[in-house]
Simulated assay, not measured.
Amino acid sequence: MAGEPQSDCLFCKIVAGEVPATIVRETETTVAFRDINPQAPTHVLVIPRVHYPDAASLAVGAPTVAADLLREAGEVAAQEKTDAGGYRIVLNTGAGAGQTVFHVHAHVLGGRGLNWPPG
């Protein structure tokens, strides 16, 4: 069920403290931690504590948590000192877009030039 922890979800296990992660920020509704395969000098994932598979389902099922996720992405950028030079927030949806863990997560990327389109 959406919103409920999933026993087979890596990010639900990180939220529960069952899997270690390098946590950089926590709030009542979100957890932010360093990506284990960084694609930029700053690469932090921000996830909601509740389980939703993607950004659209989070926005429908828990819109205030969706807003918290975006706010925290900005706070992470400021904490990591990438806000002045620019940063990117990426929300992949579906395997075809590169999503590998189906618990919504925002990638906060910065610390190097981020040309568009990505790749």
Rank of each mutant, 00 (worst) to 15 (best):
A32R: 00
G17Q: 10
G61T: 05
S57Q: 09
H51E: 04
Y87A: 00
A97F: 04
L70G: 13
R34Y: 03
K81G: 06
V24D: 00
A97I: 05
G74D: 07
A21S: 15
F102Q: 04
A16C: 10
R49V: 02
R71L: 14
A78W: 00
G61P: 04
G74H: 14
S57T: 15
I23P: 04
A66N: 11
C12G: 10
E75S: 13
A67Q: 10
V24G: 00
T42A: 03
V60I: 12
T42K: 03
G61D: 03
H43I: 06
N37T: 12
V44C: 02
V65Q: 12
P20H: 10
A16F: 05
A59M: 14
P41A: 02
A78M: 09
E72R: 03
G85A: 14
G85C: 05
T82G: 01
V24C: 00
A62F: 04
H103C: 05
R88L: 12
A67H: 10
F102S: 08
T93Q: 14
Q99M: 06
A32F: 00
T64F: 05
A77G: 03
S57R: 11
A16M: 10
P20C: 07
A97C: 07
T64W: 01
I23T: 15
G86T: 11
L58D: 08
L70Y: 04
V24N: 00
V90C: 10
V76T: 03
A56W: 06
R49F: 01
A40S: 14
D83A: 15
T29M: 05
P63K: 07
I23R: 13
G74Q: 13
R71E: 08
T82V: 15
T100R: 13
V50R: 15
H51D: 06
G94F: 01
V101M: 04
A84T: 14
P41I: 05
P41D: 07
T27F: 04
N92G: 11
P63A: 10
L45V: 06
D68F: 02
L91C: 12
T29E: 14
I89S: 07
T30I: 11
H51K: 04
G17A: 11
V90P: 01
G98P: 00
G96K: 11
T93D: 12
P63H: 09
L45H: 01
H43N: 12
Q39M: 12
A21L: 09
G86E: 08
L58P: 10
L91T: 06
V19H: 09
P38H: 08
K13G: 05
G85Q: 14
P63I: 08
T30S: 14
R25C: 03
G17W: 07
F11K: 09
R71Y: 10
R71S: 11
P38A: 09
A32C: 09
A62H: 10
R25I: 11
Q99C: 04
A32K: 00
I14C: 04
L58R: 09
Y87E: 01
A77N: 04
F102R: 02
A16T: 12
T42Y: 01
A32M: 01
A55L: 15
H43S: 09
Y87W: 11
H51N: 14
I89P: 03
L70I: 12
V44P: 00
T30L: 06
R88K: 15
